[in-house]
């Protein structure tokens, strides 16, 4: 083991850098899902579709900005703008038109409603953006690369992936924590997450909190997609893969726990990149193995709180 470590320290260092960027993207999607689950108690399968639509919208908006002759840095504005737009339009639409009708119904129905939305949105994406890969990588290219020393060699990393993605994720984590603990709206959300009935008895407008949270969660999913869009090419089906990974993060983290989501994303990101280097066959299984292992030891998730059992 010690020998192996000595031989591979440098590679492990590279794996760490790779894992960080990946973890950042995973976190952006999972944290929104977790927030929504905390308040609505709905596992939103359509969260993956919001990710995909956010990504496509960001790419389209970025391309539109570029062809309108706006300066290149407007590409970053496009990312944020697209995410906000998708959240503000689709969030309330889905919550008001669909989810609102099934609150209080059986959990399986709530889950399936979002599954139905996911199926519908999957085809809607295809009708809007077609099937050819869409990409807009200006925001990544603009920042260029930085050389990381590797023995006698150097390895170029893109600044976007090495600094921007983890930076935004960290900012989101800190901002969310501050928002939930220090602002009134945030505290109300936490109150509803912890005990909905008690919160409503205290006179909290649960309908408003739900709408707000869902919209916010949708915007986070879209932002995750938007941030991912410069590094990848968008094809049909990206939503399905994103969502299933986020499920693993949410269950591992503990429901409604944002710090848990951050730690889990980090674990999964690092685990995956180490696997790519040393055991590529297991790359895909890593998130699920982490999840099962964590839940074996802590059945309520890393940061989860045991719920009192009702008689």
């Amino acid at each position: 083991m010690a020998d192996w470590l000595a031989d591979n320290t440098l590679l492990l260092g590279l794996a760490l850098l790779d894992g960080l960027a990946y973890a950042a993207l995973v976190f952006m999607v999972a944290v929104g899902l977790n927030l929504v689950f905390g308040v609505l108690r709905i596992v939103n399968v359509a969260h993956g579709s919001l990710f995909a639509i956010g990504a496509y919208s960001a790419a389209s908006l970025g391309l539109a900005f570029a062809s309108a002759g706006l300066p290149p840095w407007a590409g970053y504005a496009a990312l944020v703008l697209a995410a906000a737009l998708v959240g503000a339009v689709l969030g309330p639409l889905v919550e008001r038109l669909v989810l609102r009708r099934i609150y209080g119904q059986e959990e399986v129905l709530q889950l399936l409603v979002t599954f139905a939305l996911f199926m519908i949105l999957e085809d809607v994406q295809k009708l809007i953006w077609g099937v050819q890969p869409v990409s807009q990588d200006l925001p990544m290219k603009l920042l260029g690369t930085v050389d990381v020393p590797f023995g006698d060699d150097v390895i170029p990393f893109t600044i976007y992936q090495l600094f921007v993605l983890p930076g935004v994720a960290l900012a989101t984590l800190i901002g969310l924590a501050w928002f939930l603990r220090r602002t009134l709206t945030g505290r109300v959300i936490v109150a509803v997450t912890t005990d909905k009935e008690a919160a409503m008895a205290m006179g909290i407008d649960a309908a408003r909190v739900t709408l707000l949270t869902f919209t916010f969660g949708a915007a986070l999913a879209a932002l995750g997609g938007a941030l991912a869009s410069p590094t990848t090419s968008l094809v049909p089906g990206i939503g399905a893969q994103t969502i299933v990974l986020s499920f693993a993060v949410v269950a591992t983290a503990g429901l409604g726990q944002i710090e848990g989501a951050a730690l889990t994303s980090l674990l999964i990101g690092l685990g995956r990149s180490v696997a790519v280097y040393f055991a590529p066959e297991f790359e895909v299984v890593v998130p699920y193995i982490i999840m099962v292992a964590v839940l074996l030891v802590r059945p309520q998730g890393l940061f989860g709180v045991l719920e009192t059992r009702r008689v």
Partner: peptide
Amino acid sequence: IFFGMLNLALSM
């Protein structure tokens, strides 16, 4: 949710 997600994870 834990029941559902664990089943999901194991199937994946």
